Amino acid sequence: MPANVWKGSISFGLVHIPVSLQNAVREDHIEFRLLEKNSLCQVKYERVCKKNNKTIPWGDIVKGYEYAKDKFVVLTDADFEKAALATSKAFEIEDFVPADQIDSRYFSKPYYAIPEEGAEGVYALLREAIKETDTVGIGRITIRNKQHLAAVRALDDAIEINLMRFADEVVDQSEFDIPSGEKPKAQALKMAKQLIESLTTDFNPQKYKDQYRENLQNIINAKVKGQSIKLVEAEEPRPTAVIDLLERLQASLKRSGTGSEKPAKTAKTAKSTKRAATKTAKRTSHVKKRA
């Protein structure tokens, strides 16, 4: 059993549920070491003083807050514990909010809340109540000397506590140049919806693999054997011009096997058709004159 991330209680009203938090996700990445180029000797980081370039042992390092240029106040472990004292052992649900009102950008990291012995009944009570009201509990929790906004959600048989970002940590979209909410042309929208419907299926996370990690592992395996490997380079996609949009949508629908409508005439296509019709008319005129 992995070590607890946090141990305390979830509270709503006068109800308290002793729980411990366990990671709900695990990192899956390839680790690398830094090496000296020629000897392949491992490179290590050292804590070096900026004034005398001496290595500082961990026992002589403290945490300082720079309140003015090159002026610091030192905080001890006791200071951090004192700041967290009132919030470190209890997670009180302050509000329950409709689940569909929370923007996904606020969610940061999920944990499973595991009930302590004897708390199974009240744990199940909170889980089922959250499910049937379709709500999310919101509160603040302190983990490792840092306070987080957090959400309590029901996830199948488990209660999940998902750390959240505070409002000032979420960047507002108004800071970017994003297209306005004007609706596109009806025909293009209809075809785009058809394309989405043709690609719609149930979510199966096992279907999606980390292709970059797999390619990297293949390269590593080949290098270990003294071999080289050739991977197909992806072409850089080009933005679809508005003039080609309907043609691209139609082609996408055909590829997905649902394209039943005739391709719409774009401005480019219409001009080509008009030129072809003019040439045909001229040829017909010459034929009539000869006759």
Results as ranks from 00 to 15, higher is better:
P263D: 04
Q227R: 08
S20P: 11
N215K: 11
A264I: 13
E214H: 04
D134G: 13
L216I: 07
A99P: 14
L199A: 14
I61A: 08
Y208L: 09
T284I: 12
D210W: 07
V5A: 12
M164Q: 01
S174K: 14
N4T: 09
D157N: 12
D244S: 13
T284W: 04
F12R: 10
A154R: 04
A83E: 06
A234F: 00
I17G: 07
A276P: 13
T55M: 00
K193D: 15
E247A: 15
E36V: 02
G121Y: 05
I161V: 04
I161T: 06
S108L: 05
E120I: 07
Q101K: 15
I17E: 01
A270P: 01
F107I: 08
A86L: 08
A119D: 02
E182F: 14
P115R: 03
D77L: 11
A234V: 02
P115E: 11
K51R: 04
D177T: 14
P237H: 04
A113C: 09
I159F: 02
A188I: 12
S9A: 13
Q206R: 15
P205W: 02
Y65P: 02
A24T: 12
K225V: 14
L14E: 11
S39G: 07
Y106S: 09
D202N: 04
G64H: 01
L216W: 02
K63A: 10
I229L: 04
F96S: 06
I102A: 01
E169N: 07
E132S: 11
G137L: 01
E27Y: 13
F96T: 07
P237Y: 00
P179A: 02
T269L: 09
E197D: 12
T280I: 14
L35G: 11
R248H: 04
I143S: 06
G181R: 12
L126A: 07
A129N: 06
D202T: 13
A3D: 10
I243S: 07
K44C: 01
E36K: 11
K190M: 07
D28T: 15
D210S: 12
N23S: 14
M164V: 10
I196E: 04
S11M: 15
G181A: 13
R290C: 07
N53M: 00
T76S: 15
F166D: 12
T240K: 08
P239R: 04
F72V: 08
S174C: 01
A78L: 02
T142Y: 01
F203S: 08
T55A: 00
P239Y: 03
V170F: 02
E236N: 10
R105W: 00
S198P: 02
L85C: 14
L14G: 03
P57A: 03
